[in-house]
Design a protein around this nucleic acid. Sequence first.
DNA 1: GGAACTCGCCAC
DNA 2: AAACGTGGCGAGTTCC
Length: 461
Amino acid sequence: MTPNTLEAYRLFHKGIEAFALAERQGIRIDVDYYEQKIEKLQKRIERLEKKFYNTNFFKHWQHTTKSKVNINSDTQLRRYLYGVKKIEPIYATESGEGSTDEKALKQLQIPEIDDLLRIRKLKKIKSTYLEGFLRESVNGYIHPSFDLHWVRTYRGSSRNPNFQNIPKRDKEAMQICRKGLYPRPGHRLLEIDFSKLEVSIAACYHKDPMMLKYLTSDSSDMHGDMAQQIFKIKKLDKSKPSHNTLRAAAKNGFVFPQFYGDYYGNNALSLACDWGKLPNGRWKGGQGIELENNHLSDHLIKHGIKSIKSFIEFMKEVEKDFWYNRFPTYQEWKEKWWKYYQKNGYIDMLTGFRCKGVMSRNDCINYPVQGAAFHCLLWSFIKLTEIMVEEKWETKLIGQIHDAIVFDAHPDELDYILKVVKKVTTQELPEQWKWIIVPLSVDADIGEIDGSWAEMKNLDF
DNA sequence: GGAACTCGCCAC
DNA sequence: AAACGTGGCGAGTTCC
């Protein structure tokens, strides 16, 4: 695994130097806040544990176990549920054991297990994030390492602590974890991320006309179109919350998984799971989100999809249409790319990096996209760091999350920084790399002066 | 008593 | 033909 061209080598060399500056700068943290929050969480966890110990579920579990039960042990839980109680596991792990992850446990519909999952969630927040931050803090700052020498796709990684997986979607976890991360006194946190970067970079490889159209025209909407097709609605109306839910479901339950190489069977099941029609493949009316006095499930039944089986068959057709009618050139590219690897034993990225070794079909399709997309971020990160040093900014780059850069910004420099960021990311980058044939765009989130990372607002610029 | 492993879960 | 890509990390368990 090496950069295959001088250009690729230089990108990583400069990347390491730029990351070193960000690492030295670090991210300010509120140590007192985390210490107090850990104590509070610990008390909440103990209360929940006490409650759980009083349930019949736990008492029976302990009764059937010789040694003292550790409720944090998935191994012990697995033995109890699937061994002692002989419940049929919903699905298995990689190694063939019955799964005890959240999704599998929820489907067992045992009320006491909800307590267990709640405890699991709080412990994750406390140990991985809060205690991790404190362990790594030096004089009120954490200094995550940003590495460029681990990842198979030539992406970056982060550790000690990992700055790239701090909770965001789960509101409660996000608040707790990010509330103690700050800019330097008097500054504002600023996060810039590329919009739909991987989809755009994929298009630079396959050049599918329909995809290029989606990425170039403001009026077209790929996820909206897929929502219409999957959920059989005539016209997606973005002013309706229910339609936005369906659009998000199409995006996260079909389009993105398909890009990563998933197939209709998984898509159908996970979509159906989301609106609660499983387990047992039972397809009932009166479920799923409300659509004009109608539940999604009734709506689909009315349109001839009367069982989970027929939904799977339907999604099979949707998939076929997606690849062979909507994006045929993308489909051909995937086949061509996979064949090329099988013949030559390697594939080259648009940025001059070579992937070799044992790779699956999905790997061949994903690696070049994932890598080159990150290299767009990296190139921008380097360029902005160079300008920062050259112009002696008070503002500093302090971190990177695959397609996003985090700044610790001086308020007086903010307008200027935003102008430079936009120029570098959307103009200079495509000028530098002529293979970028789609418009790139960036989005900004900004915190208050002395505001934490938990309270960021979208910024028009 | 530590290394290696599995599992679960957070991000993109 | 195959069947979701990349990481880091904590906790528990098993192996030596």
